[in-house]
Design a protein around this nucleic acid. Structure first.
Lengths: 210, 210, 210, 210
DNA sequence: AATGAATGAGCGTTCATTCAT
DNA sequence: AATGAATGAACGCTCATTCAT
C-alpha cells in the first residue's frame, strides 16, 4: 500500500505540476503560449513525458481550464451562506463572484478574451463541458431568484432569463476591470452592480437595504 | 493629380479586396483560417504583395475587424430615428443592435469567442482602438438614457453605468444565440430583453407600452 | 535443477507470449504497428521487461519472423509423403506450400511486401539467417528434382536453378493472391501452376497425369 | 516567354533535384532514410521549400518511385527490336530487363525488398498506379507470347499466366543477384534463365538456337 | 508595383531505450 | 525479475516574413 500510494503521489504531483504550468502560461501569456515544450519545461520534465499524463494537448488544456472553472464555482459557493434570505444571498453571490474573479484576474483575462474552446467544432460536446460550470452557477442564481419570487421579495419574472442577465452583468463588470476600463475600486463597482441588479428585480427591500 | 488618384484608386481597391477576404475567412472559418496565403489567394494577388498594403498580419486583421465594428455601429445608428422619444429610441437601438448582430452572425461567432485582439499586451493602445467603437455605441445609449432621465421618463441613475449594462445585456443575448443556447426566436429574445431593460430603468411608460 | 527449470519455463513462457504478440501485430497491422509498447501490452508484461528477453526490437522481430519461416517450412514437410514418386511429391510440395501460405495469408501479406529484414546492411549476416529456411525448402525441392532426373522422369537440368525457379513461381503465385490480383480460386491457381512447372521439367508423365 | 520558361526551368530543376535526392536516399539507405530534412539538405534547399513542389512526403516518394518504374519499362522497350521474331524478341526482353535491373541495382535492392507502397491501405488505388508499369511490361511479354503461339513457334498456352511467370522468374533472378546470392556472372544467369523460359514455352527453335 | 521562391523557427506527437526502484 | 517513469531525438508539416527579380 505504501508503494502504491507513493506512486500515486508522484503521479498526482506530476499531473499537478503540468496543470499548474499550463495554468500559469494561460494566465501569463494566453493560450498560444501553451506549448508542450514550455509546459514541460516549466514542470521540470521533458515534452514526451507529458503524454504519460495527458492524451494530448487539447485534453491537457481542457482539464486545466475545467479545473479552474470548477474551482471558481466552488469558491463562490463556499462564500455564500445557504441560510441567508434571498436578497442577502444574491448579494453574497455577486460579491463572491466578483471577488473570486478578481483573485483569478490574470487567468480570466485570457479565459474571457479567448473562448475558442467553446467552439462547437472540436469534439462535439467535449469542450462544451466547460459550459456546465457556468450553467451550474446560473442555476444557483436562479434558485435564489425563484425563492425570492415565491416569498414576494422579488417581483414575478422569468427567473431563468433573469439569472442569465444577472450572471452576464457580473461577468461584464469583472471583464471591464480586467481590461483596465474601470475607474473605481472593486468595492464600488460591486455595490453599483448590486444596485442595478436590485432595480432589475424590483427588490422590495431595496430602499431599506440601501 | 489624375495619376496620383489612379494609383490611389488601385491602392484602395487592393486594400478593399484584402480586407474583404480577411473578413470572409474570419466569418467562415475563424481566425486560424486567416493565413496570408489564403487571404492573398481570395483577393487575387500574391502573398508578398500584402505587405505593400499592410505592415503585417496583425495590422491587417486589426484593420478588418475595426472596419467591421465601425460598420456595425454605423448600421445601428442608421436604423434609429433620432427624433424619437427616449424609450422608443432605446428600444430601436436594442432592436437594431440585435438585428445587425444577427446579420453578422458568422463574423461575430468568431469575434465574440476570440477577443484576443483586445489584449493590452501587443502594442500599447493600438489594439485598443477597437474599443472606441464599443464606447461610441455606449455613449449613444447613454445619451438616450440621460435624455430620458431629464424628461423624468427614466428614474435618475448613473447613466454611464446603465448604458454599459444595457449594452452588455444586449451583446450577451446575441452571443447566447450564436452559441446555439437560445431556445426562442430572435423576436422573442429581443422583446424579452427590452422588458428587462425596462425594469432596469424603471421606465414610467413601461406598463402602457407593454 | 527443479528451480532452474522453473525459471526456464517462465522464461520460455514470456518469450513465447512476446513472440506471439509480435506475430499477431505483424499479421494484423504490419511492421509499423509493432511497437514495444503494444507488444508488451498484448503479452501482458511491461515495455521494459521485453529487454530481459530480447536484446532489442530488431532482434525480437527477427526471432519472430524466423520462427514463422521455420514453422512454415516444417508445415510443408509434414504434408508431403516422403515415399511418393518424384512428380507426385513435387505436386504435393507445391500444393502444401500454397496451402500453408494461404493459411498464413495475413502474416505473409506483410512479410512479402516488407522484406527489409533481408537487407545485408544491419549486422553482417544476422538477418541472413532468414534465408536459411528458404534455402532449406529449395534444397527439398531440388532433392525431388534430382531424384526425378535420375529416374528419367524429368529431363536433365540444373536442378539447383530449377528448384529456385519452382519456388519463386510458387511464391509469386501466392503473392499475387495476397495483393488481390488473382481472378480464380486457390485450387485453380494451384493446378495451373503445377501445369507450368510440369512444362518446365518436361515431366514425362505429364500427359498421363493431367 | 523568356521569363516564363526561366521560371519553368527553375521549377523543373528543383523538382528534379528533389526527386533525385529522394532516389539517391532510397537507393542508398532505404525508404526510412527518406526524411524531408535529408531530402531537402541533399537538394540544397530547406525542408519547408519541398512543399512548394510536392503536396506531401507520400506524394514525393510516389512520384520518384513511379518515375523509376516508368523509366525502367521504357528503357527495356528501347532495347528491344519490335520487328524481331517472337523468340528473339522474348530473349531481348529478358536480357534488357536483367540489364536494366542490374543498372538500377541499388534502387531495386530497396524497391524489391520494401514494397510497402503497394499496400492497399494508403489511398485506395493511388499507390496502385505503381502496378500499372509492371502490368504494362507483362502485357508486352504476353503480346510476344501470343504472337509466338499464333506462329506455332510456342506451344499453345494461357499466355497471360505464362507472361506473369516469365516476368516473375526474371525479377527473381535479378533479386537473387541483389541479395548477393548468385554465384555466376550476369551473362550466365541471363542465359540460364532464357533456357528455362525456353523449356516453359517448349520453344520449337530452342535446340537450334542453343 | 508585384511576384513567388525561399527561409527558419516552431509545433504536436511518437517511440526505442534506459534505469532507479 | 519486473516495473514504468522518463528521456531525447526524430519526424512531417505550417506559415509569417523576406527579398531578388
Amino acid at each position: 500500500m505504501a508503494k502504491v500510494s507513493r506512486k500515486q503521489i508522484l503521479q498526482n504531483f506530476r499531473s499537478r505540476s503540468l496543470l499548474e504550468s499550463t495554468r500559469r502560461l494561460i494566465a501569463g501569456e494566453g493560450f498560444d503560449a501553451v506549448t508542450m515544450e514550455r509546459v514541460a519545461e516549466e514542470a521540470g520534465i521533458t515534452k514526451g513525458a507529458i503524454y504519460l499524463y495527458f492524451r494530448n494537448k487539447d485534453q491537457m488544456i481542457l482539464t486545466a481550464v475545467e479545473e479552474i472553472a470548477s474551482e471558481m464555482v466552488r469558491g463562490i459557493e463556499r462564500r455564500v451562506d445557504p441560510q441567508a434570505e434571498p436578497w442577502d444571498r444574491l448579494r453574497q453571490l455577486i460579491r463572491a463572484q466578483l471577488a473570486i474573479m478578481e483573485e483569478n484576474k490574470e487567468l480570466l483575462r485570457t479565459l474571457l478574451l479567448d473562448r475558442r474552446l467553446l467552439k462547437n467544432g472540436r469534439r462535439g460536446g467535449q469542450a462544451r463541458r466547460l459550459l456546465k460550470h457556468r450553467q451550474k452557477h446560473e442555476a444557483d442564481i436562479r434558485a435564489v431568484l425563484a425563492k425570492g419570487v415565491r416569498q414576494k421579495v422579488f417581483q414575478s419574472m422569468d427567473t431563468a432569463r433573469a439569472a442569465f442577465y444577472v450572471n452576464e452583468m457580473t461577468i461584464s463588470t469583472a471583464q471591464r476591470r480586467l481590461l483596465g476600463l474601470a475607474r473605481s475600486s472593486l468595492e464600488e463597482e460591486t455595490e453599483c452592480l448590486i444596485r442595478f441588479v436590485g432595480l432589475l428585480l424590483r427588490n422590495k427591500n431595496f430602499n431599506k437595504v440601501h
